[in-house]
Amino acid sequence: MKPYSLLIFDWDGTLMDSAAHITQCMRNAIAVVGAERRSDTEIRHIIGLGLDEAIQHLYPEQPLSQIRDIADEYRQEFLVRTKHGSELFSGARETLHTLAAQGYTLAVATGKSRRGLDKVLDETGLRELFPITRCADETRSKPHPQMLEEILTDCDTAKHDALMIGDSIYDLQMAQAIGMASLAVSYGVHDLNQLRQHHPLGHVDDVTHIPGWLATQTTKQG
């Protein structure tokens, strides 16, 4: 017996090693608009939120017009100007295929835009593995649980049969808000001490460890 039927993955920092790319694109967008600089640490902390929400966290006192200007420039940086983006974490592709072969349904809940997620799904050739995906520009941004609620509805799955897997506090807060179990990954944008504050069932230090962790949950439940 599998411990869950549905595994919901965050994308950036969980499956794709994209923090450096996102940070650089945001730095460039900020420079083009002429806004006050933000440190790489500050930018990394907001990875996982929807784009508008992320920029509002960086510039809480700025008018909406400047937030939109930075967001527009970021989209240009990420989708148009940058020809070479990010790579999947080593072993991520094989891990996803293993989980699919084991009978898990796989889904994505991401702070990326629909256009951004479609781009990386096509570039990586992983689209067929994820029948259901949700993005921040088509529902509410993390940590609000709406995207999880919609995924559960689309998959006709109860929350106790699903597991949220992510590298940010926003992923775990989203799961907490709906009462869904979560698994933290320690190799992404937020450190393990931050993640543990939101009570994941456990953590893995490498994406390839996820099937093994799931096997331990099967043993415990058995």
Rank of each mutant, 00 (worst) to 15 (best):
M164E: 09
C135F: 12
I132K: 10
L49G: 06
E128N: 10
S182L: 05
S18V: 03
L121G: 05
A136V: 01
M1Y: 12
Q173A: 13
R114Q: 14
A100F: 07
F89G: 06
V108E: 01
D137L: 00
T218M: 10
E77Q: 15
A109M: 04
Q24V: 01
Y187S: 00
L49D: 11
T219H: 07
M26Y: 14
H160C: 08
E77M: 05
H203K: 01
K142W: 07
D17M: 05
K119T: 04
V80L: 09
D171R: 04
M147H: 07
Y170L: 04
L88W: 05
L148R: 04
M147K: 06
T124R: 02
S90Q: 06
D12L: 03
S168Q: 04
A177C: 04
L15P: 01
M1G: 08
Q221F: 05
A31Q: 10
V32H: 07
L195K: 08
D122F: 06
G125V: 04
Y104W: 12
Q62E: 13
D156Q: 15
R140V: 07
T41M: 08
S186N: 06
P3I: 11
D118Y: 11
L51P: 00
T157L: 04
R114W: 11
K83D: 05
T216H: 12
L129H: 09
L148N: 08
D154Y: 09
Q194S: 14
A158H: 08
A20R: 05
A31L: 02
T23E: 13
T105W: 11
H209F: 10
N193S: 14
F89Y: 15
R75P: 00
K83S: 09
E53R: 02
V108I: 15
R114I: 03
E61C: 01
N193D: 14
P60W: 12
N28H: 11
T82G: 03
S168C: 10
C155G: 03
Q24D: 09
P145K: 00
H45E: 12
A158R: 06
L51N: 00
G50V: 02
D17Q: 08
R93S: 12
L148M: 05
L15Q: 03
R127G: 12
E77P: 00
F9T: 05
A35I: 01
H198V: 02
A109H: 10
G48D: 00
L129G: 09
S186T: 15
E53F: 15
S18T: 03
N28Q: 14
K159Y: 14
D118E: 15
P211M: 15
R127A: 15
L214A: 01
M1Q: 07
A29D: 08
I169A: 11
L6P: 01
G85W: 14
T218A: 13
W213E: 10
T133D: 06
A100W: 08
L7S: 11
Q217N: 04
L152K: 06
A215G: 03
D52Q: 07
L51F: 00
